[in-house]
């Protein structure tokens, strides 16, 4: 009894320490957004009074509203499109698996093993020839279908009980109907995970928007952030405020979607 109590305490201590180490840089970043440049570099750990000054300097310096909207629009479109295309493919690869589809899956997996730098010039040429420079379409197209997401849905479909598929077929549901009405609700936590990581990847994407977003009006948040550190003198208070703003959407999305981890799902496998 005492032994398990000690183990329990140790568990909380371990989780607490891990959580503290995990959030320290983020907390420091938020605190730094309220400090002056000199205090940020001096490693000040307490909140300051410079938040308003930093905010005014930032909004005078850059059109942060435009960049946020561009990033948000690009990332949301990319995320929704990816989830639709990749989840149905991952489901298809697992539920209807045969030698041909298994082989195709392995071939597709290879696509994630090439560094982006190696394919960005041909991609840039394609987008340029299609006259899509500086558009959301250009941003989204190469990221809609990713082997990683397809593979995630394929692996997760393995947890989807076959009995449900069989009984749904007997109930007269079409194959697409089974996917839409049975698979999607049951796999909520997988969708949440996929949504978070896809949104985050699209939100933080740097190299691709850098070369295709030619007009100043189409700049995304990461591009705006890189402007802030390019001069001879960097204002770190302003910078920390800008990056604090830039990570907020990801955190909000995570907080919204993470509830699906908490609820747990009871499958009716009867």
């Amino acid at each position: 009894m005492t032994k398990s109590k000690i183990a329990n305490v140790l568990k909380y201590v371990f989780l607490f320490v891990a959580a503290m180490i995990s959030i320290f840089p983020l907390v420091w970043m938020f605190i730094s957004a309220t400090n002056t440049s000199g205090d940020v570099l001096g490693g000040r750990l307490l909140p300051g009074t410079n938040l308003l000054v930093n905010f005014r300097a930032l909004t005078a310096r850059a059109d942060i509203g435009q960049a946020l909207w561009n990033s948000l629009r690009n990332a949301l479109v990319a995320t929704v499109a990816s989830l639709v295309v990749c989840s149905i493919a991952g489901y298809g690869f697992e539920v209807y698996h045969d030698r041909g589809k298994d082989f195709l899956m392995r071939v597709l997996l290879l696509s994630m093993m090439i560094p982006f730098a190696a394919i960005m010039i041909p991609l840039f040429m394609m987008v340029g020839q299609l006259n899509l420079l500086s558009t959301t379409t250009a941003f989204v197209l190469p990221t809609v279908s990713t082997a990683f997401l397809i593979f995630l849905f394929r692996q997760s479909a393995r947890y989807f009980p076959r009995d449900i598929i069989e009984s749904s077929r007997l109930d007269g549901l079409s194959e697409l109907g089974i996917f839409l009405r049975m698979y999607i609700p049951v796999m909520r936590s997988t969708y949440a995970t996929a949504g978070i990581i896809t949104f985050m990847a699209a939100w933080n994407n740097y190299l691709w928007p850098l070369i295709i977003m030619q007009s100043e009006e189409s700049r995304t948040m990461p591009l705006l952030l890189s402007n802030l550190v390019a001069g001879y003198v960097t204002d770190y208070g302003l910078l920390m405020l800008a990056i604090s703003i830039s990570v907020l959407p990801t955190i909000v999305i995570f907080l919204l979607l993470q509830r699906s981890f908490a609820e747990g799902i009871v499958l009716s496998v009867k």
Binding site: V85, G92, K101, S145, I150
Partner: peptide, 9 residues
């Protein structure tokens, strides 16, 4: 049907 699911991606 399975192929139809996977081919767009």
């Amino acid at each position: 049907i399975g192929w139809a699911f996977v081919i767009p991606a």
